[in-house]
Design a protein around this nucleic acid. Structure first.
Lengths: 227, 227
DNA sequence: ATATATCCTGACCATTTGGTCAACAGGTGG
DNA sequence: CCACCTGTTGACCAAATGGTCAGGATATAT
C-alpha cells in the first residue's frame, strides 16, 4: 500500500500551491541535486542513500520519505536528464545552413554539459555500466533522434553542402568531444594544470571544435550574409 | 604485519617457475581479468569482492589471499592500464610527417580501446568519479606525455604543416573520439541497432576519424611518396 | 478546538560489505 | 618420517547497506 508511489501522481496542488507544496518542492529539489552529485561520482551501486542524505543535509528516512527508494530516485534523475537532452537541436531541416546547425549543435551540447556536469556524468556512468536502466531509451527515443538528424546530414551531403561522411559517426564525434570536458573534467584539469574550467575556456573549446569539425566535414563556415 | 603486502615483492621464482609459480600466475590472471570487468561495470565503490570472486569462479577468501585487499587489486588494475597507455605513440619528433603520426595516433588509440574495453571503461569510471586514485598520475606522468606531444604539434603548426590549433585540445579531441566506442559501447550499439562492433566497423571509424580530424586541422593526408 | 493531511525521524531489520583467521591439503626437500 | 611452503576455504566479525514503521510534530481547514 505505502509502496513506491508512481512519483508522478503526487499531491494535487489544489490552489494554494505556495505554502502547501512548498516544503515538498524545496526538499525534493535539494535531494535531487544531492543525489545527482553522489550518483555521478559513485555510480548507481556505489552510491548510498546515506551519502545522499548527508549531502542533502537530511536524515536518511526523510530522503526515503520523499523518494520512495533508491531505484526510483535514480530513474527520476535519468529522466530529468533525458528531458534536457531531448530539447537539444529540436528542429532542423534540409533547408537550414549546415554550418549554422552544426555550430549550434556543438555549442548547445557544450552548454548542456557545462550547465549540468553532474547530470552529464550520471548519464555517462549509466552508459559505462552497460545502460541497465536505459536500454529502452537508447533503442527507442534516442535512436529516432539520431536517425532524424542523420537523414538531414545525408541530404546535405547529397546536395554537396558537406563531405559524404557517415552522419551517425559524425554525431558520435560531436557527442564525445563535447562531453569529454564534463565527464573527464578531472583529467582535463589535471593535465592542463588548471583548477577550474572557465567560461572563457568553454568558449575557446567550442570555437576550436566548431572550426575543426566543420572544416573536417567540408562545411563552409557560415557567411553572415547568405550568399 | 600481515597487511597489504607491496604486491611487487612477491615470490622470488628461484628456478622451477613452472610448477611453482604456475598456479599463482593462472589464478592471478583470472582474478585480474574478472576484476577488470566488474570494476569497469560498477566502479570502485559499486564493485564487491564477492562479485569479482564469482566472476573468477573462486571463493572470496581465495581472491583476498592473492590480492590482499580490494584497494590493492584496483590499484594494480589501474597501473596495468597506465602501462599499456604509456606505450602509445612512444616517440615522435618534429621531423615526422604530421599526417602519418596523427593517423598512427588515432589508429593505435582506437586499437587500445578495442583490445582492452574493460580496462578503458575502468579508467573512464575512475576519472568520472574524480580520479581519486589517479590525481598524481594525471598531474605528473600523463601531463608530461601530453606536453611533449603538444610541443611537436605546435612546431608543425609553426612550419605551416598544419593549422595553428591548440595542440592539447586536439589531443583531447582524439582521446574522446576514440574512447567513445569502448566507453559508450552500450550507447553506440543501442543507437545503431547492432549487437556488436566488428573489426570492419572499427576500421571504418578509424578512417572516418582520420579523415575528418586531419582535414579539420589542415593536415594534408600522407602522400605515399614524400613530395 | 478538532480533525486531517503532510512532514519528520529514531529505532529497527535482514542482508551484504570488506576483511581476518584458523584449519587443512599437497607437494618438495631433508 | 618431518618440516616447510604454497594454496584453499568455511566460519566468523564489525560495519554499512536499503528499506520499514510507528509515533510524533506541524500546519491548515472547518
Amino acid at each position: 500500500m505505502t509502496d513506491a508511489t508512481e512519483t508522478e501522481t503526487l499531491q494535487r496542488p489544489s490552489q494554494s500551491s505556495e505554502s502547501n507544496g512548498a516544503t515538498r518542492e524545496r526538499n525534493e529539489r535539494s535531494i535531487l541535486s544531492a543525489a545527482e552529485r553522489v550518483f555521478a561520482q559513485y555510480g548507481y551501486r556505489g552510491a548510498s542513500v546515506q551519502a545522499i542524505a548527508e549531502e542533502a543535509g537530511l536524515p536518511k528516512s526523510n530522503v526515503l520519505y520523499y523518494m520512495g527508494n533508491k531505484r526510483g530516485l535514480y530513474v527520476r534523475l535519468l529522466e530529468r536528464m533525458m528531458a534536457r537532452w531531448n530539447a537539444l537541436l529540436d528542429d532542423i531541416s534540409v533547408e537550414d545552413d549546415p554550418a549554422q546547425v552544426l555550430e549550434a549543435f556543438i555549442r548547445s551540447k557544450m552548454q548542456l554539459s557545462r550547465r549540468h556536469p553532474e547530470g552529464s556524468r550520471l548519464f555517462a556512468a549509466e552508459i559505462l555500466g552497460g545502460a541497465p536502466f536505459l536500454q529502452e531509451y537508447l533503442r527507442g527515443e534516442l535512436r529516432d533522434w539520431v536517425q532524424t538528424r542523420a537523414k538531414v546530414f545525408e541530404q546535405w551531403a547529397e546536395r554537396g553542402l558537406m563531405d559524404p561522411v557517415d552522419p551517425v559517426w559524425l554525431i558520435f564525434l560531436i557527442w564525445s568531444a563535447t562531453q569529454h570536458y564534463a565527464d573527464f573534467e578531472a583529467q582535463v584539469l589535471g593535465i592542463t594544470g588548471k583548477d577550474e574550467i572557465t567560461d572563457a575556456d568553454v568558449e575557446r573549446i567550442t570555437q576550436f571544435l566548431t572550426q575543426v569539425i566543420l572544416k573536417g566535414c567540408g562545411v563552409r563556415p557560415p557567411s553572415a550574409v547568405t550568399g
